[in-house]
């Protein structure tokens, strides 16, 4: 069931930027839109990119903040 929730409405953790948004909610009591805006601003992306694996994979590699697989896509292209 948690996977159903994650697929339906989750930010998908380290696949994208869910862990970062969650950290802002937990550490600063930020509501969802404030947390997304804050993280997006810090990363220099739009809020919609925070749930986008394509955008976030590269950013996570660049910043070395954890990715799911061992392949570095930046080396591939």
């Amino acid at each position: 069931m948690p996977i159903s929730h994650i697929m339906a409405s989750g930010l998908t953790g380290m696949r994208a930027a869910g862990d970062l948004v969650a950290r802002m909610e937990f550490s600063e009591n930020m509501r969802i839109n404030e947390a997304k805006d804050y993280v997006a601003r810090k990363l220099g992306v739009e809020a919609i990119d925070l749930g986008d694996e394509y955008v976030m994979r590269e950013i996570r590699e660049e910043l070395d903040i954890g990715v799911l697989t061992s392949v570095r896509i930046q080396d591939e292209y």
Binding site: A8, G10, T12, G18, I48
Partner: peptide
């Protein structure tokens, strides 16, 4: 059968009950 939020509307999903599941 399966529906989902619109792109950009996603929220954090916190997981409880530890690893018991």
């Amino acid at each position: 059968r399966i529906v989902s939020v619109e792109p950009g509307m996603q929220v954090p999903v916190t997981h409880d009950i530890g690893t018991l599941r």
